[in-house]
């Protein structure tokens, strides 16, 4: 889900009115705020996913270690 969410966030600015089309477009400061906040959001989610992935990998390792040793 994460990549799709990220892609959606990146594409949203394309829906904003453009300066040359709509006269006065979205102010650049708001655009910056949106982009950097959503960017930081992605980083946060990715961090949380990293923690989850760590547990997943740990579980996998545990299950392989528990398997009987074979020469």
């Amino acid at each position: 889900m994460l990549p799709f969410l990220g892609a959606a966030l990146v594409v949203i600015p394309l829906l904003w009115p453009r300066a040359d089309v709509a006269g006065l477009g979205m102010p650049l400061s708001s655009a910056m705020l949106y982009i950097f906040i959503s960017w930081a959001g992605m980083i946060g989610v990715s961090f949380l996913f990293g923690l989850a992935a760590r547990r997943m990998v740990a579980r996998e390792d545990a299950s392989t270690e528990a398997a009987p040793w074979r020469p």
Binding site: P13, L14, A19, G25, L28, S29
Partner: peptide, 8 residues
């Protein structure tokens, strides 16, 4: 500024 509007 002159780039102060969303224009991408």
């Amino acid at each position: 500024s002159e780039i102060g509007r969303w224009n991408v």
